Computed example of a mutant assay.
Amino acid sequence: MRHRIAVIGGGPAGLAFARVLHRHDHPVTILERESGPHARPPGGTLDLHEGLGQLALEKAGLLAEFRALSRPEGQAMRILDTDGTVLRDWRPGPDERANPEIDRRQLRDLLLGPLDVRWGRGAAKVTPGPPDGVRVHFEDGRQETFDLVVGADGAWSRTRPAVSPVTPHYTGVTSVETSLDDVDTDHPDLARLVGDGSVAVYGANRAIVAQRNSGGHVRVHAQFRAPLDWHANLDTADAAAVRASLQALFDGWAAPVLDLLRRGTAFVHRPLHALPVSHTWTHVPGVTLLGDAAHLMPPLGAGANLALLEGAELAESVAAGPEDLDETVRAFEERMWERAGEWARITTAGLEHLMSPDPAEALALFDQVQPSR
């Protein structure tokens, strides 16, 4: 039976879902609000885990292509004290492939492949329950009906209200992002500081983390505990003012570390939000959620991996499952909630350790997750 299926959102979850359905010759409609694949920057690099993101790509038949694009050397991680002292310097072995890095743009293009996306089709809301199926209401006033609507539309999902009244809450931690281009030629000292992967410096309730992307691009995140409106009297479009504010916040830290902020040319405010750790919902026939729409959690490496695997697993279940589509989705949700709940607990506790008054907690977490080799 070929059901009318739509996925809202062209991120990792939605594309993995569509790509696996496509592999099983099952039609799917992909609805994406953005006007095209390059409408806005896709974000930084991702580490895809064995058994999670990599397993999803294997289900999509894309694991070999991923390995050709990924950067195993990007797994390297260096921890510094605020005075610049190197506390940990872990580098992957030549055969280490547990969590290789890939740029989001490369991953998106890999998943897109032959898929046909309806760009510029923003969903305003989803209405379950009409006799002919689930109705998607578009921002331009049009409507379309499907047997199954999968909300993979991120933290501020327009699909989520169809199954759950819950909205993300502010974690108390915010991040200000900047970046450096052509780091190896224009900033060789910072290139050496960052290395092939990431460098992180933890202080009391704050941190500076820099991560290498491909093409000599480095993303820098200043993270700290603050009220959601901490920037109320600051023009966030004024790079000089934001830079000065951050330098004051990290006053006394080693000069090379502060240079990661001083040399940034533009700054983006990203407050960290999350859904409740145990977020579930009463099953609604014809509608479900994937990824951040279902279980937004602190960005500590699990979110994209879970999104990819959930998309792939749901697609496999739909393609190979019984004719009762509703029971197939219901069973998938139960499995998703159990796994996502565990990861939400892990990442929530991880954020507390990383943004602790005692920087030693961050170091202990690193030793637990990535022991020195």
Rank of each mutant, 00 (worst) to 15 (best):
T280V: 14
A294P: 14
E323D: 15
L306T: 05
V284F: 02
E310Y: 07
L289G: 01
G311N: 07
D292Q: 09
E310V: 09
W281E: 01
G321N: 12
A294Y: 05
S317R: 14
E327Q: 15
G301L: 07
T282N: 14
A304M: 06
H283Q: 10
L314V: 07
M297W: 06
T288W: 00
T280E: 08
H295S: 04
A304Q: 05
A307N: 04
G321V: 11
L290T: 04
E327Y: 07
E310A: 12
H279N: 14
L306P: 00
H295Y: 12
V329W: 03
E310L: 08
H279R: 09
A304D: 04
N305K: 09
T282G: 10
L325P: 11
V287T: 03
L314A: 01
A302V: 13
L308P: 05
A312I: 03
E316R: 12
T282R: 15
T328E: 05
L308E: 04
E310I: 05
A319V: 09
D326M: 13
L289I: 09
E310N: 14
R330M: 12
A307C: 09
L325T: 12
A302R: 11
P322W: 13
E327D: 15
V284S: 06
L289V: 04
P285D: 14
P298G: 14
L314M: 07
H295D: 02
E316N: 14
E313D: 14
D324S: 14
D324R: 09
T280I: 04
A304W: 03
E313G: 04
A319M: 07
E323T: 15
D324Q: 12
L308N: 04
L296F: 09
V318K: 03
G286S: 11
G321I: 12
L314F: 04
A315H: 05
T282P: 06
G311R: 01
A315V: 08
L306D: 01
T328Y: 02
T282Q: 11
L308S: 01
A319R: 01
L300K: 09
G286H: 06
V318Q: 02
V287R: 00
V318S: 01
W281V: 00
V329Q: 02
D324V: 08
L325N: 09
L300N: 12
L290A: 04
N305I: 12
V287P: 01
D292F: 02
L309V: 10
L290F: 07
H279L: 10
H283A: 14
P285T: 11
A312S: 08
A304I: 06
E323G: 15
H279E: 10
R330I: 10
L289R: 03
E310G: 14
A315Y: 03
L314G: 02
A320E: 15
G301C: 09
